[in-house]
Design a protein around this nucleic acid. Structure first.
Lengths: 129, 129
DNA sequence: TCGATAAGTCTACAGATGTAATCGAGAATC
DNA sequence: GATTCTCGATTACATCTGTAGACTTATCGA
């Protein structure tokens, strides 16, 4: 038996992440409630959702609280922490840790819309003054 | 038997990506040569490298050309294409496709250095004129 | 009270991944 | 020519992931 693991230690898979998004959007929610929100679009059954919820609890990403005869699930890690970790992972892996390189790449591959550029310009101005 | 698959179709795993980086850096190279470049740092044996090379060939990410009695490996997909795909995947998955959101996040989490900011400012100026 | 429900837990199973050992054939060496 | 060395190819095997069915138990309606 292993120790329950620190909250941000274990990797969250793609399918698990989809479940996390539902709970980040609103929580706590029951398994049925999560399925309600996601089973249709992902074409999952409630069984799949239950498995993913269990795995997330085991990974320390979710907490459960009893509500009547069932559980309500609630995120233990903040979305921003997850998103930040994933972003940094990508930047480290593909751009040697240089965020500007990622930016340059997106720019060159025309993945940036005019709106993106405008927003980032505004952000930059704010950051640099 | 399946068709060799289109060049950018199948996902490249983390370990496979490390091998790709070696070949993007310089190619073509033999398996032994790739191991030379990476086995120490990743603590792999030549056997592991060979497996990864084979899988990458099967995925259509690498081409082989015989050189004497062995093979030389060469990337079939450009690094920029791979990097672009991965970046876009992340932006879509975590930021609803909005690159500006990714930057806002990196900025807020202090993942951007002064140099990053300066470079991005320069790039932006270039892009918007 | 008794069966139908519904919740969580256990089990399942195929494919992907990480990490390698082993095998068979050709090349180099003695 | 026999032995050894080296390649790539084949096989192995544990873990993770996606996806879900089966099982157990408690509850709610009839």
């Amino acid at each position: 038996m292993t120790i329950p693991s620190d909250p941000s230690g274990e990797r969250i898979s793609d399918a698990e992440h989809a479940v996390m998004e539902v709970l980040w959007d609103r929580s706590p929610r029951s398994a049925a409630d999560v399925c309600e929100a996601i089973c249709e679009t992902r074409d999952w059954t409630i069984a799949t959702v239950k498995t993913l919820l269990s795995r997330l609890v085991a990974k320390g990403a979710l907490a459960t609280e009893p509500e009547g005869r069932r559980f309500l699930y609630r995120p233990l890690i903040a979305r921003s922490a997850y998103v930040g970790g994933e972003s940094r992972r990508l930047v480290n892996r593909l751009f040697g840790g240089r965020a500007a390189s990622l930016f340059a790449h997106l720019a060159q591959s025309e993945a940036l819309t005019d709106q993106d550029l405008a927003e980032m310009e505004a952000l930059l101005k704010e950051l640099r003054q």
